[in-house]
């Protein structure tokens, strides 16, 4: 079973929903519409020709200032066929919502929480969508490209009054 056969199987089954197939450095990327993502993922996992039973990785990319702004990448691996595949969904800035794939690969749970935490992309139907790495009260999503690298200067002082005087939330 080769990756071309998988791409053909997906193309015949999903047709229009498969927007683009990208080949780069020996890696295959399927760009799909958001509406058919879950169906496609389930097909990829269950179809005997694909059997992508292992979700290696799930991560988001911020293409700011280009549009569409966000993309979510699903790096799939097929243990029986020893194949890798990337599924990609593009999202508009105004509507950063994707359906969750936790029902297909439970391991997506924490990956999706991480993407939500750092990019602010929401996963519809996720069982436990909370921040995972940052504190609950953190403002903003730091891996967005328009988020500054340094938000609060490092305080080289133990004088609390001086430190507090530089923090915006203390003055409020």
């Amino acid at each position: 079973m080769s990756i071309q056969e998988v791409v053909e199987a997906v193309r015949t089954r999903f047709g229009e929903a498969l927007q683009e197939v990208i080949e780069f450095r020996g890696e295959t990327t399927l760009v799909v519409r958001r509406e058919s993502l879950v169906d496609l993922c389930r097909f990829l996992r269950d179809d005997p020709a694909c059997r992508f039973n292992f979700l290696s990785d799930l991560c988001a990319v911020d293409y700011w200032p280009e549009r569409p702004r966000f993309a979510v990448n699903y790096h799939l691996y097929s243990l029986p066929h020893n194949l890798r595949l990337r599924v990609k969904v593009f999202l508009e800035e105004e509507d950063p919502v994707v359906p969750t794939v936790t029902g297909i690969w439970p391991t997506a749970n924490w990956h999706e929480r991480e993407v939500y935490d750092l990019f602010g992309i929401r996963f519809e139907g996720h069982p436990d969508l909370r921040r995972i790495l940052l504190p609950e009260d953190w403002e903003g999503h730091p891996l967005r490209r328009d988020h500054p690298l340094v938000v609060e200067p490092v305080q080289f002082s133990f004088n609390w009054r001086e430190i507090d005087s530089r923090k915006p939330y203390v003055r409020e």
Partner: peptide, 17 residues
């Protein structure tokens, strides 16, 4: 472009995208 490469680290599949 974009690439993903995985190696077997002592703890498992360490991938870089």
């Amino acid at each position: 472009g974009e690439v993903y490469h995985a190696v077997e680290s002592p703890r498992g599949e360490f991938g870089v995208y």
